[in-house]
Each structure stands twice: as structure tokens, then as C-alpha cells.
Design a protein around this nucleic acid. Sequence first.
DNA 1: TATGAATGAGCTTTCATTCAT
DNA 2: GATGAATGAAAGCTCATTCAT
Lengths: 199, 199, 199, 199
Amino acid sequence: MGDTMDGTKHQRRGNTRQRIQDVALKLFAEQGYEKTSLREIAEHLDVTKAALYYHFKTKEEIIVSLFEDLTQPIEDLIEWGRSQPHTLETKQEIVRRYSAALAGAQPLFRFMQENQATVRELRIGDTFKERMKGLKEIIIDPEAEMVDQVRSISALFTLHAGMFVLADLEGDPEKKREAVLEVAVDLVTQAHEGARGRR
Amino acid sequence: MGDTMDGTKHQRRGNTRQRIQDVALKLFAEQGYEKTSLREIAEHLDVTKAALYYHFKTKEEIIVSLFEDLTQPIEDLIEWGRSQPHTLETKQEIVRRYSAALAGAQPLFRFMQENQATVRELRIGDTFKERMKGLKEIIIDPEAEMVDQVRSISALFTLHAGMFVLADLEGDPEKKREAVLEVAVDLVTQAHEGARGRR
Amino acid sequence: MGDTMDGTKHQRRGNTRQRIQDVALKLFAEQGYEKTSLREIAEHLDVTKAALYYHFKTKEEIIVSLFEDLTQPIEDLIEWGRSQPHTLETKQEIVRRYSAALAGAQPLFRFMQENQATVRELRIGDTFKERMKGLKEIIIDPEAEMVDQVRSISALFTLHAGMFVLADLEGDPEKKREAVLEVAVDLVTQAHEGARGRR
Amino acid sequence: MGDTMDGTKHQRRGNTRQRIQDVALKLFAEQGYEKTSLREIAEHLDVTKAALYYHFKTKEEIIVSLFEDLTQPIEDLIEWGRSQPHTLETKQEIVRRYSAALAGAQPLFRFMQENQATVRELRIGDTFKERMKGLKEIIIDPEAEMVDQVRSISALFTLHAGMFVLADLEGDPEKKREAVLEVAVDLVTQAHEGARGRR
DNA sequence: TATGAATGAGCTTTCATTCAT
DNA sequence: GATGAATGAAAGCTCATTCAT
């Protein structure tokens, strides 16, 4: 198998790992992590379960690898954010970049959003939490009023929710993303100015 | 069995159904639906698995029953909303009442939020979706600009997120709830006036 | 419950035992013994499982009671047969009476025929076997040629099979029964004369 | 595991599927389908239940596979029968071949005979019924008198019953089989000539 | 790089049965 | 004459994982 000269079948030239990740992410996002079995993934790829174990030591490692491969941009974003001054412009830029980062790994974030209970028990849970904390730190002014802190967090959540909930809403997807972004930027701006305004 | 005078053990006088619901909800919210086995629930209650089946026909029915018992207030809210004029005051009141309703069934909503992938496959999935649609309809002005529609949805999601994400944030819980509510009311107000203001 | 003066509901005046037997036999015959649960029987009667246990000590006892109540005619037939001379007329009469007896307890015999593997393990298994042995003894001449012994047994089995297999065959039921009877009588006659003829 | 040189244990070289079928058929025939659990089969083979599921998707598939593997001769017989003229010789030959076919798959047919209620609910039920219909069609003259139709069916049933009921009867097995066959051939002959004779 | 064969643990569910009321 | 509540045992089945080849 996989050894035909013409390569009609099984032309996988070492990209199996990739294909596993792709299929797994798709299924995890659609059905949830626990409801997706390795058998199912294997069948979709027309390989055996054992083959998956050649590429990944456990089921968990598949989702971990996806997480690590796809969330680098967010890690980068946080690092960038930390080096910037806490100005309004910075915060707005962070929101913009975060929106772009989310859009770039939609299925993963959909998965994370819809399987929080599961994620919490997985190894990625803590990493994710820390990342969220990092984001908060660079966007929230710890001395601001509670309302404004909530506003900042709300900005982030608006971006998250925007990705999935708005799927039901009619309208051009690109326009929707822009609208979501505008609201988020707005929130972060109000948070920033509120803090300043009330001084 | 069930014969001790002090009633310490086995004082189950017909409250077993309730106790099952309580424990199940707690565990479902903590660990997720699939990761919570009936064995685990039964052990927590010191009964056998079979006893669960005396009270509920399936595992799914447990969560369904919780859903039906606990979401009545929201159904009522939607019905009330439909009968009101689409004024700003109404929308604000809806947000306030929704906040209260969420607070009244925290664990269930935490479960729903954190197990969306699971819920979607369960029988409650559709009901929940429709309920959300109902909420949107009474809070969103379909002729408003996209940004304002997003703002309205963001208000709802701020309430949702507020319940759980803010747990990490330090501060008095009651104060936090008020802050969240204020932001949500703000958003819905902006949505309403934006629509009006730009006319 | 069951105590209303008008008796609209639960007018069962002590005939519950009967009703259990009726429903049980119907279900056992339709679905088999193992596939029929006490829950199912109870639901058909609109009583609880526990009620069945008031009338019968075990599930097995239900089928045993049916067997005992319904196979008396065959026991009688055998006793009668034993007291008769082993003439052709006797044998023919036995076949005729056996046919009538089978017709009188169709569902039970259908059950016995279609659940032999089960029956064998039940308490009635041995009783049934002995009854069959009794029948054979009064219809088979132990000194006859093997072929003629087979013919006698075949006569009995033709009657058995006739009851169920012929259901598929088109034609008036009464006519079919007569035809079956004729073939059986024929077989037993040939068996008797063959034995005699070859002497 | 599976590494001993002498191969006493775990010499399973791919014959496990076969061994499962063998043991399963034996137990199904002895105790009935429902009373035979997969645990029991697995224990007899000294493997785990899960191993059975590697080879068969469900319990039902085990019996289905047996049916498909073992009833080919009968299917062939029916096909052959259809291509032959409806002469007496053909019918007699069919009876003879059917007798041989039954003898070749005794345990399966014993199972089918003794678990009819179960078989009816299984996937093989319909196939079996059709096969029986096929047999009837090539052996019964639809224009013959009812008695003669019954005689033909009786021939088939004599063969069936012969296999099991006669186990109790003393005498050389081979002789018994011959006797049964003779009676069956006789019946089919009478059926054929009766039809002819009464014209 | 993969497969074939298997395992051990665990799952949801069903069943016959019991017993205090 | 019956119910409500529960049990212990077992069933069929699925899953992540292993390992020799």
C-alpha cells in the first residue's frame, strides 16, 4: 500500500501529520473533542488508528499540536503588546490585531469556545488561561473603574462571540467582521477615556 | 434500608429526583457532560446507577429536565418582551431582567456556555437556539445599522461572559455584576440611539 | 386506585392474573421469551412491574402457568391413548384429537415451536419432552421398520408445522387445516399398514 | 504475547475470526442466541470481548456471517431447481440434495429451527423466509390440490424435524437419515402423482 | 511509515427481582 | 391487590492505547 509507482493512491509524501491535524480540527470543531473518536479521524483519512499513533503519542497531543501551531500569532501579539506604552492607540491596535489573529485560526477558536469544559481539563487549558491573562494585562488598566475593566473584557468577548454567533445573522461576512471590530474598538476606547475622563 | 430513625442515611422521601438533578448539574458544569459518567453521579448520591434510571430514562433526559426546569424565567422574559413596544426602556429592562435570570441559574448557563459543542447534539440544542433567536428579535432592530445590531448582541454576550470570566477578576461579586450590567445597558442604549441618531 | 365506585377505571375484579397471562402469551409468541421484558408486559396492562410479582413469583412462572393451564387437553389425550388398543383407528383418532388440541392453544404452541432453545432451559422443557415421548409411544410401534416410525413422527410434525408455516399459503384456513389433517392421517395410516403389510 | 515458539497459546495467525464463528455457532445452537453473551464466547476463546468487536461490528453480524457462509449450498440448490423442469425426478433430486445440504450445516439449522422467534427479528430473518419461499416454489405445483401442496411442505419439514427430533430415537444415525429421506421422497412423490392421478 | 490484532477500562442501558408501604 | 423506589448483575458496545511485524 502506498507504494504504487504512479502514486494514484496514497500520494501522501510525508504530509500525513498535516492531514491528521486538518481532519481532526474539522471534526473536533464540528462535534466536540470527546465525541470525536480516533477511529473516526482514521476512517476519514483512510488509514488505521495505529497510524495516528505513529504521528502523535496521544489523542490529547493532536489538539495540543494544533494549539501550538495555530496560536503563535497571539503569543507574538501579547509580546508586542507588552513592549508598547499603554496608550489608546496601542489598545486599539491590539484589538485590531487580535481580530485578525482570531480570523486566521477560526476553527481552532471555535473549538476552544465550544469545548471550554473539555479544554479546561486538557494540558492546553492552563496555557490558554495564561494567554488570556496576558491579553487582559495589556488591555486593562488595573487602576481603572470596574465598569471600564468590564468594557475592555467585553471588547475581547465581542470579538470572540462575533466569530460564531454572527454566522446566523444575514449580511456580507466581511462587513460583519468590520462591524464587530468597530464595536470592540469603541468599547476599548470608551474604557480608556472613561478612565481618563473621570479623573 | 431506609429504616434508621434518625434518617441520616436513606432519608430519601421522594427527593431523589431532585438530588440527582443537583448533583448532575454540579458535575456537568464542573467537568463537562461527556466526562461525567452516571457511575460518578450515582456514587455521589450513594445510590446505584440503576436508581438513576428509575427517575430518568436516559442520561440526556437528566440534562433536558434541568433545562426545562431552569429556563422557564427566560421563556417568560421573551414572551413579556414580545408584548412590549420596542422602546429604549423596554430594551434596557430586558437586559436587566436577563441578567437576573442568568444569575438565577448560573450553573446551568455555565454548563451551556462551556459545552456548546455537546449541547448542539443534544435535544435541547434546538430549543436553546430558538430561545436565543427570540431574545435577539426583541432586542435587535432589524433595520438598524450592522454596527448597532452587533452592539445589541454584544450586550447579551457581555452578560453571558460576565458571569464566568469575571470570576477571575478580583473584586466584590455584587459590584462586578452591577458593572457588567451597566456596560450591557450602555451597549443596548448606544445601539438604540445610534440607530435613532443617524437618522 | 382501583377503588372508584363507578368502576370506570380498573374494573379488574380479580381477573388481573388472567390478563397478565393473556398479554404475556401474546408478547412471548410475537417476540420471543427473552425479548419480552416484564416492563413491557406491565406497560401493556397499565400496571407496575411489581404487580406482576404479586401474581407470579418469577417470569418463568408466567410461562409455566400458561403451559399448565393450556396443555391439559394433551395430557388427557395421552392418557386416553394409553388405554386404547394400538389399532389403526386409535392412531387416526389420536392424530385428529391432537390436531384439535393444537388448534385450541395456538399461541402457546407457536411459542413452544419458535422458542425451543429457550424452552429447553426452562422448567417446562422436561415436561414437554416427556409429553412428546408419551405421544410417540402411543402412536409409534417400536417394532415397526425405521421408515414407518419416521412416518409417524412426521405425522405429528406435519400437524405442528401446518399451524404456522401454512399461514403464508393462500386459501381458506379451515380447508388448510383439513388438508393438513388428511396428510397426517395418511402418514399414520401408511405407517401402520406398512408395518402390517411387510409382515 | 503470541511469541512462544511452540505456539501453544496465542498461535492465532489470523484464524481468530473462524474460531469466533465456530464457538459462537456452538453456543448459539446449544443455549440460544440471547442467552449466549459475548462475554461467554470470549471466555471460551480466551480473548477479551473487545477482540470480538475487532472482527465483527455487532453480535448480530456474527450470526449473519455464519448464515451467509453456510447457506450458500441451499442458495445454489434453489438456483439449480429453478432451471430444471418440474418433473418428479427433479423434485426427488431436490429433496435429496436438500437433505444433504441440511446435514452439511447441522448446527446452523438447528439454531435456526430452535430460535425462530429470534431469527425473525434479526437481519437474516427475511433472507431465510425468501429462501424458504424459493424452495416451496420449485417443489410445489401451485395448481395442485391443497392436500398435495401440504404433502410437499410436509416433505421439507420432515427433513428439518428429522435432523433434531430423531436424535432421541435409538438406531444408527445413517440409517435414520436414510429413513427420513425415504419418507420425504415418498411424500413428494405422492404429491406429484396425486396431482397427476386425479386429473 | 504504517497495519493487524488485541487489550483493559469504562460506558450507557436493561433486566429480573425485592420490599416497605 | 398493588405501587414506588431501589438493587445487583449483566449486557452490548466503544474508546484510547499498545506492540509485533
